[in-house]
Design a protein around this nucleic acid. Structure first.
Lengths: 150, 150
DNA sequence: GGTGAAAATTCATTGAT
DNA sequence: ATCAATGAATTTTCACC
């Protein structure tokens, strides 16, 4: 990816609602050229969409935790991500190397809700869980440095 | 937060570039009423901003890992998040309960870059690290269910 | 790939209810 | 808090380089 595309991606990760006018000024191109480049970045899958960044506290989900899971019976087919997908409290699901099979990031309203969620995870995916509660989040989901990829 | 605000937040987490016109249709309000509500949600800090969702593979950051860190000397003042903030490869930093002090989510181009990053983390914050490599990401950063908070 | 300009749409304010 | 109306700004498409 070349310089202008990197500048565009950088600007849109910092502010996903930037207008094409401002974007064009910032990268030194015409509005339509920028527009076309953004379209292409979206088509190529470099940009996968846009989201509002929300405060989980404001949404009454103040409790974040990591849940490491392991199958109760390792000989069974492993389809935990699909079995857990319906649980809206699960923010992210990572398949990991190491002792655990998956690492989940979950967000709930209270310890009681965390307890309920863990029970649901265990029964839905037939797994054991090891949970690490997040006490605070110094920073999260920072925009990546856009590297020289040409 | 009441029903319409929840609908607005839900819609904007799903598509952060939705126009106020479409948003207004979707929640059954006039454009200006929706506009005002979004303003208020932003002011109240429910919505903290907007970002483009980028593909880390496309940005040449295909390797994701979790890095658990512990101070080498637990009697020293603990300011690891600040000491590590300048490392752009660190996506997120969580202060956690449990054996570790912090859990970092990092994104790098290669194992060699991960090795370099771990050395930087250790020297910058005077910590030991335990790293868990992510093999695949079934899902990540899913929009939260917008709860009934009234 | 890029430009510029026209047409359609949307934004953002205002004032009334 | 909501609405309708307005001018300003933006998005989107198109012909051409």
């Amino acid at each position: 990816m070349e310089e202008i595309d990197r500048a565009i991606v950088g600007a849109l990760t910092a502010d996903g609602r930037l207008s094409y006018t401002v974007l064009a000024e910032r990268v030194g191109l015409s509005v339509s050229a920028v527009h076309q480049r953004v379209r292409r970045l979206e088509q190529r899958g470099v940009i996968n969409g846009y989201t509002a960044v929300v405060s989980y506290e404001a949404l009454d989900l103040p409790l974040t935790a990591f849940v490491a899971i392991r199958p109760f019976d390792p000989s069974q087919p492993d389809d935990a991500p699909e079995r857990l997908r319906h649980l809206a409290e699960i923010d992210s699901c990572y398949s990991v190397a190491g002792e655990d099979f998956y690492l989940l990031l979950v967000r709930v309203a209270s310890p009681a809700d965390l307890e309920r969620l863990l029970q649901e995870i265990r029964t839905a995916a037939n797994v054991t869980t090891r949970t690490t509660v997040v006490l605070s989040t110094p920073y999260e989901n920072r925009p990546p440095r856009i590297a020289d990829t040409d």
